[in-house]
Design a binder for these strands. Structure first.
Lengths: 189, 189
DNA sequence: ATAATTTTGTGACATTTGTCAATTGAAATC
DNA sequence: GATTTCAATTGACAAATGTCACAAAATTAT
């Protein structure tokens, strides 16, 4: 099995031992992609049947509000990228676009989902992914409700310093819910 | 089986047929509670081994920031209440408190979780709960990032009008991330 | 290397929201 | 039913953030 697949699978199977059979079954629905900056993985309002795992690179998600991009998050190495909406056959609410040239694992949701009902290990594997994602969302909400702009900036800087090296400040300001001018002024202090 | 349990189970088993055996196994870890206004279900920073499903009543969650309550959401009939943190054996980040006298189903997470690894129907049942919760969180984030205060107020009013009848405006303002004075002024228009 | 484009920073001013204080209104308690 | 407590509103002013305009810096393309 490809080492990259192995790493990905290990990352989400901590709570259980997967049989080789299950691992192969999962791998059958994975593939590796090399894509360039600005490539759009998922388009807002479109159905899409893949989720992605970032091996190398950087990705952002955003949606349009009154014609303006509102950035919702950034994924770097070892992060999952996708939309639960897609997992549930609904159109994505966000556009997901590469910020750097990236290497990704694509997970074919359409193919892997039915296995949940026949293979309990797959069910728990997917469970682990969704659970981690939900925890991540809880954190994000906690973060967004907790603080004023300055606090948010400082916490984000402490928690995810790489973002400030790799993601344009314009996007980060938008994520923080402030204008880039305001972020620029916060940074000046 | 108690009709209330039946309704709860049906609510999260739409995608699969549960055998009677599985239903009984789930019910063994459910119980019904009648509790009064102001009762605290879950305390911030404490481990807790139950999640709840609201049959009748209203519940709010909040955490303390610099000694001030920050309300994070309100649950009414047919909503789940709990914390994924607890599901993962971490202390809760939020306090969960009744806003009205309420009837709830308590789900014993500690007992039901191990079944995920032996009963695939239970795995998918719990999956469905977590998935719905994650979708709810996605919506919440979308909502919170999308709009200015006035838009948020109007959308919330359109989507959840019952909240404004049943939840004090002070809590709602806090949830919207504004002071009650600002909410009061928005409403004046 | 140079030019063109994109990103970031800064100033002046408008708008929104927060803070503090006082008042009114509603609901719970006795 | 009167009293007490809590919730909601309103006004005056302060602080934070947004908007618009422009300049500087960095990045990308030719």
């Amino acid at each position: 099995m490809d080492l990259l697949y192995q790493n990905f699978i290990d990352h989400y199977s901590n709570s259980q031992q997967l049989t080789d059979h299950t691992k192969v079954e999962i791998c059958n629905h994975l593939s590796i992609l090399h894509l360039n900056k600005k490539y759009v993985l998922i388009k807002e309002n479109q159905r899409h049947y893949f989720a992605y795992f970032v091996i190398k690179g950087a990705v952002r998600s955003y949606f349009l509000k009154d014609g303006i991009e509102v950035n919702t998050w950034f994924a770097l190495e070892n992060d999952m990228v996708g939309s639960l909406q897609n997992f549930n056959d609904n159109p994505s609410k966000e556009t997901i676009e590469l910020v750097e040239n990236s290497t990704l694992i694509a997970i074919n949701l359409e193919q892997i989902k039915p296995l949940m009902f026949s293979n309990i290990q797959v069910a728990n594997f997917i469970n682990a992914i969704i659970e981690e994602y939900a925890l991540f969302l809880e954190d994000k909400i906690y973060f967004s409700q907790m603080m004023n702009s300055m606090d948010k900036y400082l916490i984000l800087l402490a928690k995810e310093p790489q973002l400030f090296q790799r993601i344009p400040l314009t996007y980060i300001a938008s994520f923080l819910g402030i204008t880039r001018e305001t972020l620029s002024r916060l940074r000046a202090k």
